[in-house]
Design a protein around this nucleic acid. Sequence first.
DNA 1: ATGAAAGCGCTAACAA
DNA 2: TTGTTAGCGCTTTCAT
Lengths: 400, 400
Amino acid sequence: MDWPVVNGSIPARPGVFGTKSGRCGKEIQLSWDNVCRTFQQAYAPSDPGGPSEGIRETVAEVTLKDVALASGCSIATVSRVLAGTRPVGAETARTVREAAERLGYRPNQVARALRSRSTGTVGLVLPQITNPFFPSLVRELEHALHAEGRAVLLADCDDDPVTEAARIGVLLGRRVDALLLIPVDERRSREAVASAAAQVPLVLLDRGCGPGIADSVAVDNAAGMALVLDHLAATGRRRPCFIGAAGTASAAVERRAAYEAGAAALDPAAPGRVELGDFSVEWGRAAVDRVWPSRPDALICANDLIAAGALQRLRQLGADVPGEVAVTGFDDIPLAGLADPALTTVRQPVGELAAEAARLLSRRPSPGEPGPRRTVRLAPQLVVRASSAPAGVPRVADCF
Amino acid sequence: MDWPVVNGSIPARPGVFGTKSGRCGKEIQLSWDNVCRTFQQAYAPSDPGGPSEGIRETVAEVTLKDVALASGCSIATVSRVLAGTRPVGAETARTVREAAERLGYRPNQVARALRSRSTGTVGLVLPQITNPFFPSLVRELEHALHAEGRAVLLADCDDDPVTEAARIGVLLGRRVDALLLIPVDERRSREAVASAAAQVPLVLLDRGCGPGIADSVAVDNAAGMALVLDHLAATGRRRPCFIGAAGTASAAVERRAAYEAGAAALDPAAPGRVELGDFSVEWGRAAVDRVWPSRPDALICANDLIAAGALQRLRQLGADVPGEVAVTGFDDIPLAGLADPALTTVRQPVGELAAEAARLLSRRPSPGEPGPRRTVRLAPQLVVRASSAPAGVPRVADCF
DNA sequence: ATGAAAGCGCTAACAA
DNA sequence: TTGTTAGCGCTTTCAT
């Protein structure tokens, strides 16, 4: 028998099976139940003329019921075998798995989510994926989460707190199990973040959002700055200047504070030499115009973009980097290794940040009883490249 | 009345309402039904001692049923009002919307998806988010899709076809309505892509994957190359050399073919001057070592990364760009504007690519009857920067 | 225009 | 260990 003959009405012959080549091209056994569903779906909703050719190409989704029918046991048992939730007889398990394999069964995660009240989905909300620091972080997060069977719903906020709040709402409506969030703004994100944190486990990444709002994972900015200062001191720099970012963002505040705290070791006047703008290449260029006349021997930039701008402008001004002045960045974005001279910078432990964030998510099962907020700070690493080589040492081409 | 007194058993008093301040801090009316669910959830599953303090902080999810109870009409009516699927009395509609608002109702997208067989979710599968061309594309896609109420499930394949196939499987299990896919490899991705395309609408982006597999959207590589060649010809370059990528990827093949077809206009021998490696900075550096001895006056690189490497090596060799030799890229990644000299390149119409991809997705409702595959090619734009300025013209600093 | 009722595919009580 | 029975929250016939 090849295919049951049906003419406009759905036959009811339980137990009878049709044979058909499925989507993988291999012959599979269909439960009569599935045959009927295929039939119905081929009709619905706008196909009044009877089953189209399509019916012969399409098989209705294979469900637990099909597997149960095919393996001769109950739906519940099949569920238990496939979801591995409860002990099941070895023989039964084998039969079930075999049937599932043969039919090409794929659990419907939507149904599973509805019933179990867990989507296995994490929302990832970030200010702007085009910020060059984020892609590597996103990559690590994606891998960490997929490794534990969770999928990632991505939301890009366009650097706008209003959009951010809206995206958070959308993700909550889709019932993400948890949120991973890089807040757009220390203050203006707070309300939406706090409200979300009350509903699902939420971990703040990279940037803070006020105290006590949610768990957070970030690099130890102070330690990073200390690495830079130590390095510059060791290579004989004595007139450093900090080019940072204004505002309340944690990276901006902490890096500046660490500079001010540590720079006195190089020069008593150093902590006062601070210029604040934003985290952009343009600001890096502009800042050089402001500080270069006073001939600092090191420009400590709050991130790599600022440093890239600074390098660019210094070259235009004919300054010798690192001969006359060293330049350092923060983050170690891909651009850093490509700049000329290659940029000395502080590498964020992106993989560990992601792993730690994933770990925090799993360990916060009860939103009703939040417990104390946890803050994790991870140690960064100094990457020394040509832009801070001691004066007089020949420059080494750095690899990407 | 403040809160029903309950002592270890669930009371059943339909129609009675509790009052409570919800998660937004505002006072909301709770249906008795919701009160009971809150109670049950506070117990379950591992809370034998009775309702914890948590019960006073948490409100069970507000459902259609609550809204129906509160507005005095049936669940079906509420659904129709809120989903806007069918005409509903103006007065009823108002009452319902008001109740929904008051209770802070948020439709459960999971339940909706299960019932309506549409998750409103699109899978975005890409080779590596860290490839600097992708973030801006991802950004545009995210915005285009969110604008039509769809959410994005992100999958990063680590440039591995096996991972790619696995990710596609995961997304299909999560019942994405459609897939947006940048294939890892022209050939090795084909099987998984074809199989996926048979199950859901699928649009290939940026790269092809063999003919007839799926709809696709990409930049017109030939047109882009033509723009470059015209520009170089117009600025007097006569000894161009192409630095491209080997392999079957569409970008590699098409850009090279376009060069070979168009370069003869500059120099009859030009089409033969082709070096092939991969799309990396390292290859750009290496390629310069191979071609520089023959003193070309233009290096036409197949993408910006190659061009960045070429610029770097040329500077190390002391070559004058653009005086002695012009360098061009392709894609216009952020790095291009930051290179020194800033890189002349071909900008991909990222926003339009995203819009077009989203459009194709919506217009493919029946996977049963695929119809002919559609291929969309979008026109790129030449961005002239310092790296190809005519020899002798003073260099202009380019902004980021 | 509205309501009652039947599921979507699955998991989780509760029995047996 | 296994089966039976209820739903998860929603949309969608089918009546009214």
